[in-house]
Amino acid sequence: MTVFEPKIIAFCCYYCAYSAADLAGSMRLEYPANIKIVEMPCSGKTDIRVLLEAFERGADGVYVLGCMEGDCHFLKGNLRAKRRVQEAKKILEEIGISGKRLEMFNLSAAMGPRFAKIANEFTERIRKLGPSPLNKNSTIKEEE
């Protein structure tokens, strides 16, 4: 049986998700190795061009992690990120890649378990969706 191992990029806000990832590590929580973390100074740094570039460079799924709504260190960065992610989802639909491959989640720095849960659930979602239509030669490895 073959298992598809998706490449997933997680854009993490420094003030919440990046610390939550640290916490998840300290708590010895397991999450899939498919997730590649990119640190951002705030989820408000989210740029549609960068999200699209991730897909262009081979990501099967991308998600943005920002602070809980109302708790942004820079007040409204996470709300702006939300709108941009919505717009980028529309673009992905338009291109035919499926908007489900992109998502935004909110969490706080204290939510290590939530970080791991999101990583697990999103990886599972992308695994079900299969490789991005852009990645013709995806890594589908034999299950041992």
Partner: peptide, 19 residues
């Protein structure tokens, strides 16, 4: 400049998908 980047990216993605 930003919108140019987005359009370029959209077109490249669309074409890449079409092979």
């Amino acid at each position: 400049q930003k919108e140019v980047g987005i359009l370029a990216s959209k077109l490249r993605l669309l074409r890449k998908k079409e092979g």
